[in-house]
Write a protein that binds this DNA or RNA. Structure first.
Lengths: 269, 269
DNA sequence: CTTCCGTGGTTCATTATTATCACCGGCGGT
DNA sequence: ACCGCCGGTGATAATAATGAACCACGGAAG
């Protein structure tokens, strides 16, 4: 984080679907950078087309440049187009909100969402950069990601987002091992109050996780039955998605997932 | 261009649909930066998720971060979703390839394309950052853009891309005045050999151009009839698009477009 | 097998860039 | 008129970027 470009790029992280437009002072406050610094950096970002300044309020917002970049990536390596149908299927099967996230540098980026059509549903604020350790999506991805990323994450600052957030490194490591053994991750209100998340990893061609797909439900609604339905659906969809993006399911995960599915089959109901 | 962030951002411009993956030395060569510098910058960009390095070849490609950013922008300010149907309509009406570009900092970013279904058609390399002065899209946008952008562009280095490219500032200024008077821009092989482009501007709420929509045809196929068809269709579609993005058509353009349409009506055929 | 050239990646002293702070003009509420 | 906050600016002190040299590797050619 000491390099100037890194600081400049944190400015981009300040924009989300919640706050698509941000002012200069606000950016400075959020990032802890000096106003002048932010101003100069934003001018540069605007020059590159990554942000633009429109309207009388002089607020900044993301610029057309990001559309171009996304287009280039999606054209040469389509993923959102592959994830979306899987999420639609998940949402209709489970009746809950499904979303997909990709490992994006040292964090997790939510790239696709399909909200359920229930009256009471989890409506997630997509577009935010999510930490690994507070979300089921993050834990699922991290458990099967490059070991170096796992270590770097565990040895970074792990802030709590709710009263339920696990921040203890030893406990997190244990949780990751459980995820690795079961093939799926769960988060009971670790990232947001009243949200229960379940996630499974999706893989790259090299057999390491590229991201994850997840289903989020209101915590009070979670039942063993629903839980089982969600996990089974996730495992099945994830396999398809991994295949469609040209990924390889590693043996470790394949075994873990099979074990979990088998254990459900034995249970009554 | 002297700031380090600007240099780092030029690295992102090296990725296009043509070359979605680039190596380290290649990036250094293209940008004129030192290998070590590029490596450090790419590491930072990768940390932010804007690029990623996959596969044994260690090539860099755009990362999931750009998907997130595009999603955020598109959710709060949908434009590609608005441009696309207009382009589809243009392509079917004219039988030629249509595309939309937005002013992205000090250049033009192509964000949407609809190729015609003809056997011989202009197949454009989208995703590239286009200069203003070589393309019809660029001239259409520039003629109605903020004066400061126009001046800055005209006083920058204007390199030629084909033998037909106009690089003389005085002549370009004259062309821009013609565009302002007629409401549309034409480029006869100024950006690419054998490509004839016609474009009209699209506007922001403040009455300045946000970008343009254009139709590109093989130069040899262009006829007065086709030209008229294209221009009329463009003007009509552009008005709709401007309205749909919440933009305002300035009086100057409205008059110019009306004049052009009227002049065609008077003509035989 | 050796040589050569091209990768990607790293190091570190030199140097140029960047952050900081106080300041400015403008706007809106009190 | 005042106050606070906004976006934006400029000179100086402090920091971060630079780039040549270097390493290890891999493939092609001699």
């Amino acid at each position: 984080m000491s390099t100037t470009v890194a600081k400049a790029l944190t400015l981009l992280d300040q924009f989300s679907e919640d706050t698509p437009e941000v002012g200069l002072s606000d950016l400075a406050r959020r990032t802890g950078l000096d106003k002048a610094t932010v101003h100069r950096m934003m001018s540069v970002l605007a020059d590159a087309g990554l942000v633009e300044q429109r309207g009388a309020a002089r607020l900044y917002r993301l610029g057309p440049g990001v559309l171009r970049l996304a287009r280039v990536r999606e054209k040469s390596f389509p993923v959102t187009a592959i994830f979306q149908p899987a999420l639609d299927s998940l949402a209709s099967k489970t009746g809950e909100t499904a979303h997909a996230s990709l490992i994006s540098g040292r964090a997790l980026a939510t790239i696709d969402v399909c909200e359920s059509n229930r009256s009471s549903r989890v409506s997630l604020v997509a577009g935010e950069v999510l930490p690994f350790h507070t979300t089921a999506s993050g834990m699922a991805a991290l458990a099967f990601a490059y070991p170096e990323l796992r270590e770097r994450t565990l040895s970074s600052s792990l802030s709590a987002k709710t009263a339920h957030t696990v921040t203890d490194v030893k406990l997190l490591r244990q949780r990751l091992e459980e995820v690795a053994a079961s093939g799926f991750a769960e988060s009971d209100q670790g990232n947001e109050e009243d949200v229960y998340g379940i996630a499974v990893p999706v893989f790259y061609a090299d057999g390491f996780a590229s991201g994850s797909i997840a289903v989020a439900t209101p915590a009070h609604r979670m039942t063993p039955d629903l839980r089982q339905t969600i996990i089974c659906a996730l495992i099945r969809e994830a396999e398809k998605v991994t295949f469609n993006v040209g990924g390889t399911v590693p043996a470790s995960y394949r075994n873990a997932a099979a074990r979990s599915l088998a254990s459900f089959a034995k249970m009554p109901g």
